[in-house]
Each structure stands twice: as C-alpha cells, then as structure tokens.
C-alpha cells in the first residue's frame, strides 16, 4: 500500500433501504469507510450481506437513504450538477459479476467497448476511436479482429475481459469490481486477477473489490472490510485480518476457507456464527478503532476482551522473538 494516504473515496454513515409499497428492507446499516489512492479495498461477506448494494451505490445505481459518498472531496450521492455527474461517471467504472448477462448480446464488441467513448465523445475521429478500441482489446489480451464479433461467440473468460476493456477504455481512476471472477472457471480466474493487478500497477487505479472468496481476497487486497447483514463488522489490513481476526464473524469466515490437504481439512474445526455471541440489549455497540488501522463493531464489554486479546498476542510475539 502506498505511504501517502490520500483518500479517494469516502463513505459516511450510509444507509440503503429498498422499498416496495409499504414493505421495507434495510440492506445497508450505517456503513463508513475510506478508500485510499492506489489501493485495493475488498468487501467480503456472505450472499445477501449488502456488498453489491454498496458497490452499486458508489456507481449510483442504488439511492442512499441517508449518509453521503464523497469522491475526491466532492459529494457524489443524491442530486448533483449534471457536469459533475458526467465527470464522476467517467472516473468511476464498474466491472460486473456475470459476463454472460453484462454484455449487450445484440451489439458487436466494437460497439460495446466504444459505448462510453460515444457517450462522452472521447475521440477525435473515427480512426482515433478504432485505435482506442483496438488498444483496449490488446491490453486485455484479445485480438483486434475480435471487434466485429458478437458476445455469444466468446468464452466466459474472454467475455469478462471484454467487460474489463469496456471500463478501461474510459481511463477511469476508480473501479468497482463486483465479484469479477466468481462466475469464471477456476482455470482462468488467475488470468483475470493478474490483468486487474497489472492495470493497477500501470495506471495507478484504485479498486473496490467485492468478493466472497477469501483466498482470492487475500491475494489481491491491501485492506479488507468484513460485512455481515448489511453492517461492516471488522476492517483491517489484509494480513492483519487474516492472522488475527477479532470479530467472531470474521473468525467463522476464516474457518470456512477450504484447506487443500485432506488430513488437515478433516481435523479442521468449523466455527459458526449466528449473532448470539453478542448481548447488545443494554450495552450498545459502536464502530471503534481498536488498534491503529484495525476497526471493529463492538460494545464496551467486547472492546475490553478484544483489547486483552491484542495485549496477549503482543506478549506472545515478544516471547517468541526472545526465543
């Protein structure tokens, strides 16, 4: 992670509620975090926990109930001037989960990749546009001759790369990657991940990476936020979170990672979490920084326990070093 911590995107106490008639569903509760320039920030959690909802709120497909989203010091949620809106659209792009449904089946790859260019007229001449499209195609490892083809002629991995080319051609600064590899075959996941990493190094991109596969998250991210039922329960740097998970839900997620060794896997103890560990009836929980850079959702009593754990570990580490 870069040393200069310039905040690119910041979510402040956002709540997202889906309404249908009188029915309401509170999808995201009071969620806040900052994303720094050039980092990969991951959001992990089980299905239906609200990860995608947050991602879509950032590209402004979902409306906020309350709170605000700030991009480079400017509010981008709610009603904003049209000119600013277009700026934000250019700079924040999204990569979708399902390559089978996120491409327009009735358009050529040429149109799909240039759609953003057409919308913002980001080209000087027809030649220039073709040139940009060709470059984008090459940068994701596809061939220039593919631009006359239709999406159904491609494999899943190729289609996902078309989706990446479509967002990369806009030259964005921030990309919301919504489970970009979960719909892909295991054999081509690494290819797409490496591509994303490569773009980050080359163009200084910032990613919000949404996933439920922890092994992938560990490989790609700098910081990780764990979300459970619409609430962020823990946020820490990647290695810190993997080595010393504090929140019981994070614990249970870690214990669910399969170990590629049958003997170890058999001995592994699964840890289930259902929320009954907490007693929030009197002592209300809050979002606290328990250690520099390590945030957790806990009440006073739990805070003490977590602090004790951190202390113990410190002593343990010191003893280990002495030996």
């Amino acid at each position: 992670m870069p040393n200069n911590k310039e905040v690119v995107l910041s979510l402040k106490n956002i709540n997202i509620v889906f309404k249908q008639g009188k029915k309401k569903f509170h999808a995201v509760h009071d969620c806040s975090f900052d994303i720094y320039k050039g980092e990969t920030f991951s959001l992990v959690g089980e299905s239906g926990s609200g990860k995608t909802t947050i991602g879509r709120a950032i590209v402004r497909i979902n409306q906020l109930e309350s709170g605000e989203i700030i991009y480079k010091g400017k509010k981008i949620s709610g009603q904003i001037p049209k000119e600013e809106d277009r700026q934000v659209i250019r700079n924040i792009q999204m990569i979708f989960q399902d390559p089978a449904s996120s491409l327009n089946e009735r358009a050529t790859v040429d149109y799909i990749v240039s759609e953003g260019l057409y919308n913002f007229h980001l080209y000087k001449s027809e030649e220039d546009r073709l040139n940009k499209v060709t470059k984008a195609m090459e940068s994701v490892g596809l061939l220039p001759e593919h631009i006359t083809r239709y999406p159904h002629e491609f494999s899943g991995g190729q289609r996902q790369r078309i989706g990446i080319a479509r967002s990369i051609v806009m030259e964005p600064e921030f990309i919301v990657a919504d489970e970009p590899i979960s719909a892909l075959d295991v054999s081509i996941r690494a290819q797409v991940l490496n591509l994303l990493k490569q773009f980050q190094v080359e163009r200084g991109l910032t990613y919000l990476f949404i996933a439920h596969d922890l092994s992938v998250v560990r490989f790609i991210s700098d910081r990780i936020a764990v979300i459970h039922k619409g609430r962020i329960v823990e946020l820490a740097e990647s290695e810190e979170l993997f080595n010393f998970p504090l929140h019981p839900y994070t614990h249970s997620l870690m214990s669910a990672i399969p170990i590629p060794d049958p003997i170890l896997e058999k001995k592994k103890k699964l840890f289930t979490y259902d929320g009954s560990e907490h007693d929030y009836s009197v002592d209300k929980p809050s979002w606290v920084e328990i250690k520099p850079g390590h945030f957790i959702f806990a009440n006073e009593k739990e805070k003490e326990i977590y602090k004790k754990k951190i202390q113990e570990r410190k002593i343990h580490n010191e003893e280990f070093e002495k030996k």
Binding site: R86, R90, L103, E115, G163
Partner: peptide, 23 residues
C-alpha cells in the same frame, strides 16, 4: 445487468431504448 452497465457508462435513455432494448 447489461443495462446497468450502460448506465454506468453514462448512456442516455433514447440510446438505451434504441441500442439496448429494441434490438
């Protein structure tokens, strides 16, 4: 999803109708 993708790319409604829906 491909219509959401077009929205993320800033596509206008008339273009959405003619390029994404009618075909």
């Amino acid at each position: 999803e491909y219509n959401l993708a077009s929205r993320c790319l800033g596509t206008s409604i008339p273009r959405m109708v003619t390029r994404n829906i009618l075909p």
